[in-house]
Design a protein around this nucleic acid. Sequence first.
DNA 1: CTGAAAGCGCTTACAG
DNA 2: CTGAAAGCGCTTACAG
Lengths: 341, 341
Amino acid sequence: MATIGDVARAAGVARSTASYALSGRRSVSDEVRERVRRAARELGYTPNAGARTLATSQTMVIALLARFLPDEFAPAMLQYIQGVSDSALEAGYDILLSSDPYGPAALKRITDSRMADGVVLLNVAEQDDRLPVLRSAPQPGALVGLPGDCTGVDVFDLDFEEAGRAMVEHLDALGHRELILVSQPEHVIERGGAYVWRLQNAALETAAARGVTLHAAYGSSSQPDIGRELHALLEAHPGATGLLLNNEAAAAALPTVMHERALSAPADLSVVGRYSDEFARSFSLPFSSIDAAPHRLGRMAVRQLVRRIEHQPTADGPHVVRLITPELLDRGSTAPPPDRQ
Amino acid sequence: MATIGDVARAAGVARSTASYALSGRRSVSDEVRERVRRAARELGYTPNAGARTLATSQTMVIALLARFLPDEFAPAMLQYIQGVSDSALEAGYDILLSSDPYGPAALKRITDSRMADGVVLLNVAEQDDRLPVLRSAPQPGALVGLPGDCTGVDVFDLDFEEAGRAMVEHLDALGHRELILVSQPEHVIERGGAYVWRLQNAALETAAARGVTLHAAYGSSSQPDIGRELHALLEAHPGATGLLLNNEAAAAALPTVMHERALSAPADLSVVGRYSDEFARSFSLPFSSIDAAPHRLGRMAVRQLVRRIEHQPTADGPHVVRLITPELLDRGSTAPPPDRQ
DNA sequence: CTGAAAGCGCTTACAG
DNA sequence: CTGAAAGCGCTTACAG
């Protein structure tokens, strides 16, 4: 493979001149620049990434630390990755993907060995064991997901509290007095998925404040369990006229369940979910929903990370915690409750 | 950050000795080795990846070239990535993930700049424009997906022809005389998804040889279109007693469609699909199916790639094309056809 | 068993 | 406007 030395020799100049001609970091005569460029082109010269990194201490790589959890929802996961990947590409960075189940050690190795200029953490838990490592690393970090302690990192997430409020307020305004909320399984909370109770608590508080009855339940993350559970919940609360879903598996199962119970939305039951629009589209979920916006969150995290990387190490402003405001996309699955006598 | 020089100084030895003591690539007295190790531990020494790469010309990185196509099925995609990721981790490699839509240029940059020791290509097309680049790269390559020309690379895929045959034979043996096959959308073929017609042609041939009528159709890759199409197909072929699915969206939509038509499997209709077991599980698809085995294919590709990388450049055996034999997982959705008079 | 030196391929002050 | 040199942090022949 051609090196900068080969290019310099072919162009009849010094290696430094070849380097400058290619990078444009100091002025070079038009003629020399042309000769160097031609030589580079003809030799098919591409700079060696390792050598450049060693010389500049810039890797132009962003590390993406993901966790492939068994009950993590695959379509959402892939969209986070896509968002990160797309915006890294735009900014000129490559992605180093790590899904080592033992996250802290993997992260430490990556940051210590200087394989990346910055780190994006996915599936962030309330008490995330990767955070202490990230805070003491020299590289900046951006998270998708809100941890208990946000110091030293930039954080991006959906405002799940607002989502919980918005769901309840929407149905309350339509006149519903009794609702059911189906959340992710309880073990998602146990491993630190704070978004589950953030949404649920806000929904419960809002319901209480408005005198709305809200039955909060945890649902399974896979079929057919979740289907059975939905049946049982609808049976147990015959007076409920609205259903809130913070559980993708439940959203996927609901059309069948409603069909089996001969219910239709919104005539018999109003339904509001929380999942990605992409998921809604590919499964044609007919329910109004709050967009989980995984692609957008991935993008935001990378954008901010790149800003930090490129302003480093001085002009780094205060760290941000950006919770995006839920938007309820109306798919017509909510309406005033049916009359019951 | 501590360098090997810092470690050497702290241990009172030369840098070379420190390096050898840590790598074990030449014998070092027990006492010196202990001193060096302790110094490394106390200083929190981790070798600089770029420097090591420059010195050894080994990156310990595998490039993963994916394509995020709009109608690519997300759960399958993520599982390929997981398979690759898991086995890379086991082998001690990191993953450089590229999803640049302009694949050939991205691949060329990655291989030319020596960012990886080997390359895995996902979503391989019949005529894949990344293949010429990969063949002329110095790094070995492994593909998931069967291209028209397999020279110079190792190839892994499901045996889609055998899958098509197996599906038809299975239903023929049960006594079915008229079947419907729903494939992926036609534009998947157009962009090079050869597996669509590989399965379809084999199914058609097998059916013809056995005197079975097979109606082959392309289906949409998303709802609600595919649902409508399934209805139309079942309507158009009232004599069909078996349904073959090579289309994940169709598999996801079918339970609802059958419900709507008051059909049940296998009493009214025998159904066989082809998708990943993981997908079947998370959506509880009640149909017997041939496992697409994305995780396993990803693993196989990496395993072989690592073998090539580590035997390079001499002892590289002939390239392999490994088509894994479809396994029909019986979920009880097939039976002899109902009597029709 | 250990050390001093060269070299991997870049970039970037330092000189002219 | 250009060149010769140093240095990034490793590894690995070459000497002893």
